[in-house]
Amino acid sequence: MIRIDSLTYFNAGMAGMRGNQEAIARLNQQIASGERLLAPKDDPIATGKVMDLSNRIAQRTQYAANQDRAEMALKYQNVVIQGMSAALQRARGLLTSIDPDHALHLREAHAVQLRGVFNQVLDLANTRDAAGNYLFGGFVSNPAAPPWANAGDGGLASGIPLVYDGAATQYDGTPLTPAPGGTREIEIDAGRRVQVSDHLDAVLRASAGAGATAPAGEDILQKLDAMVHNLPGAVTQADISALLVDIEQTVKRLERIEHRIAGALSEIADARATNQALLLQDRNALGDLRRVDQAAAIVELQSRQTVLEAAGRAYARTANLSLFNFL
């Protein structure tokens, strides 16, 4: 028989009560927050995984945002490119129905219609995105300087090079070096980027020279403009035929862009599907690691409460037992 001293006797119930109280406080916190891990030390191994998963989820969420962004940009651009194609097709229709021998008023009527087409293509080439930046501005995105300059009242003087407006300046006032070309990419997954912008320099111009200012009269807009101006005057069948060939080639180039966009969109769709599946998986794994099992927690809470109550009662009953009470 072990001898028990009075202090131990009185304190014996304390440890049990304290332990249960601590457990109840913890369970309460877990149930209230829904979190199983109240501090990393509660489960160091799970914590390591939770942190890695959280980082991955943050990255994947960003990739998802990037994908949306890229898709939006590409779809918007696609609409513009298609519009441009359609306009050029209309120009072709108009041109095929023109004959240099037609009467002046007929040629003028055609010229007016062709002017409409020209304006449409020019507007599309200078389309701005929601933020006000030129869609086909390449790396120069200055709202003050349309990438395809249109001088005067819509009448584009022949011979004016259609490149960046030389008046564009840096924020400190120094002139901007014209930098044609340059296409933007967006990261849609780790190490996976898609091109989300195109530079029409290579599309609307016959010579796809990047970086250099093309000689006058080489891009399709200028050629259309020249046709509009010359149609009432002297236009030969050869001029019309040449323009038709140019339009044909431009439409083909636009088509290539459309194809590229379609490819990029399907690549985004593919990346998105993978990303979402992984994101879901990571979120589930994170949830499993972090979320408290409410049912189990509540059951444990109940049993802890019962034990605490029992311990309290046992203490109250036995604490006042003393031989001195009977002397």
Binding site: G138, E185, A210
Partner: peptide, 24 residues
């Protein structure tokens, strides 16, 4: 955000991509 190698300009995002790639 722009890379220093031409063609470049304000709309160039290559250096921003390089910064973002530091995460990986």
């Amino acid at each position: 955000a722009a890379a220093a190698t031409p063609p470049t300009g304000p709309g160039d995002n290559r250096n921003a991509l390089a910064l973002a790639a530091l995460q990986q």
